[in-house]
């Protein structure tokens, strides 16, 4: 039996569609209810929080799964990223209120750097310092560090867009699909950090031990025209 871990929430429907399109037994996934483990036709499907998907795979509980590339980047989990499914496409962005200056980060267009902040947290000994609210502290830290900007990372578990409105932070780092949530909260996209999509991932052990089955699943998923077989 192959154990497949799927992310709950926003991308679950995308994940189920991929399972169906790949010809895997997805009947049990059409009426999940409150179940978190579903067995169907030689497959066990585990439903887990998106951020927990890598842990199920690394610990050996699951053979393979679907996880956002944002989650893979944030957790740094030692697993095998088999394919970009082309689903769940969005982007990781830096966003801030339109009148907020955010240090030396480039604008959304990638143009010239903006001015330094005006508020009390503008500089410490000449070094820019901004507060960033995010669900992705690792990604945010790497992004600002690589630009030499000192950032105070405020780790929130949701509704990140609230933070600048309430004065908790100058900007946010979050994933964006259409940008409407940002706009509704008075935020403007300043820079794209990286594209994000749903990836087919597997444990290193399973890739070795169950190569044939996993390779055929990868081929089935990438052959649907939605997947990106690079």
């Amino acid at each position: 039996m192959l154990t497949f871990v799927l992310p709950t929430g926003r991308v679950l429907q995308d994940a189920i569609a991929l399972i169906e399109a790949a010809g895997l037994p997805a009947g049990g996934l059409s009426s999940i209810g409150r179940r978190l483990v579903i067995e169907d036709g030689g497959f066990r499907f585990i439903l887990a929080k998106p951020m927990d998907v890598p842990m199920y795979i690394v610990s050996g509980v699951a053979d393979l799964g679907l996880a956002g590339s944002d989650v893979l980047m944030e957790t740094g989990a030692p697993l095998v990223d088999l394919a970009d499914t082309g689903r769940g496409v969005c982007r990781m962005v830096l966003a801030a209120p339109h009148d907020q200056c955010i240090g030396e980060c480039s604008g959304a267009s990638g143009d010239a750097p903006e001015r330094l902040p005006r508020n009390g947290r503008e500089r410490i000994g000449g070094v820019p310092w901004i507060r960033v609210a995010t669900k992705y502290p690792g990604i945010a830290d790497r992004y600002f560090s690589s630009r030499g900007i000192q950032a105070e990372i405020i780790h929130l578990n949701g509704s990140v867009e609230l933070a600048p409105r309430l004065g908790m932070s100058e900007c946010i780092v979050d994933i964006v699909q259409t940008g409407s949530t940002l706009a509704a909260n008075g935020l403007v996209e300043r820079a794209t950090i990286c594209p994000v999509s749903l990836r087919l991932v597997a444990s290193k052990r399973s890739v070795v031990q169950r190569q044939r089955e996993i390779r055929s699943i990868r081929e089935a998923m990438t052959a649907q025209g939605k997947g990106v077989d690079r």
Binding site: V58, S59, G60, L79, S203, K204, R205
Partner: peptide, 11 residues
Amino acid sequence: FDVYAPDSGVP
């Protein structure tokens, strides 16, 4: 070579 045991997804 890498060595895998049944209860872990990593070598």
